[in-house]
């Protein structure tokens, strides 16, 4: 009886459950696991000592090409969220568009583009040679002497009219595979040529129309997002013009024309631009700057 009274009533189940659950985190268990796996105190051979296999737990993977910044998936998601909001609110800041483009350029999209390039002889040549467009590689000084109505001359005139230069393209940083990064870089660099061949200016309205054209032709998600959301904050008269004139044009031409990613622009600079347009299957849309000037003068008249 006395012994029974001396026996203390203690809770047993809950504390032992907790301690057995938490014990997994205990240092002893982790150390003993490491011993079992042969990671500690194991005499290393000379070869193994020369291998530096120990890595800290969270280490960024190696860059695959110069300028590559490997991102984790959650970082890419954050970049997408930030850049999509930023591009909507402030589309003139190039960084947002660039980041939005790279964070939405999923591997399967770029893979599809690369397959398109692989199946075309000129596309294959571009993939093999990996040309980069700079003002030097395009020989801007010679372009002004090219025949009128050639692609080179039109490009030069367009550059002058809009006041831009081919050297301002931001290099691709966040795409993992080097070949797919090149494909995206090529798209960025050819963007000015798409302007030239369609004649669209670099005003907001022009960029939006060109985005839809690119989306129908290339399928890059950023262009689709741009075409969908960018017309929301612009002036209603511009939006009306966009939706009635340029969007139908973009849909029609983007779908039926040949994949523009395969065009080796640098090699066809001397070609007549109208011939090129008919070969590719593009009709020139109404000149946007003219339409805008007319609309402005009409408003002035009315006022």
């Amino acid at each position: 009886m006395l012994i029974v009274q001396q026996f203390q009533k203690r809770s047993f189940i809950i504390p032992s459950l907790i301690s057995s659950g938490l014990s997994y985190l205990s240092k002893d268990i982790r150390l003993a696991d490491k011993m079992e796996d042969g990671e500690l105190h194991f005499p290393k051979t000379e070869f193994e000592k020369s291998q530096n296999t120990s890595r800290p737990l969270f280490q960024r993977p190696e860059p695959n090409y110069p300028g590559h910044v490997p991102l984790y998936n959650f970082e890419k998601l954050l970049m997408f969220l930030g850049s999509s909001i930023g591009a909507f609110v402030n589309p003139t800041n190039n960084n947002f568009i660039v980041s939005l483009g790279e964070s939405t350029a999923f591997p399967w999209v770029l893979n599809r583009l690369r397959t398109q390039m692989l199946n075309d002889p000129s596309g294959r040549q571009i993939l093999k040679e990996r040309p980069h467009m700079t003002s030097k590689s395009l020989n801007l000084d010679e372009l002004k002497n090219y025949p009128d109505n050639s692609l080179g001359k039109s490009y030069f005139l367009w550059l002058e009219r809009e006041g831009v230069s081919p050297d301002t393209r931001v290099p691709v940083k966040y795409i993992t595979d080097p070949e797919l990064a090149f494909v995206f870089q090529r798209y960025r660099e050819c963007h000015d040529f798409y302007h030239t061949i369609t004649g669209l200016p670099i005003v907001r309205e022009g960029e939006i129309a060109l985005k839809l054209f690119e989306f129908m032709n290339l399928g890059i998600p950023m262009t689709g997002l741009g075409a969908l959301f960018a017309p929301i904050p612009i002036k209603s008269s511009q939006r009306r013009r966009l939706l009635s004139v340029y969007y139908p044009w973009a849909v029609k031409n983007g779908t039926i024309c040949k994949p523009l990613i395969n065009v080796y622009w640098e090699k066809i600079m001397k070609k007549d631009i109208d011939v090129l347009r008919s070969e590719l299957g593009i009709e020139k849309p109404p000149d946007m700057r003219e339409l805008r000037k007319k609309a402005r003068s009409k408003k002035k008249q009315v006022a």
């Binding site: 002893d28 268990i29 150390l31 003993a32 011993m35 500690l40 105190h41």
Partner: peptide, 11 residues
Amino acid sequence: LSDAQNAYMDR
């Protein structure tokens, strides 16, 4: 004996 070795012996 290091901590790891002790831990393993205990185990």
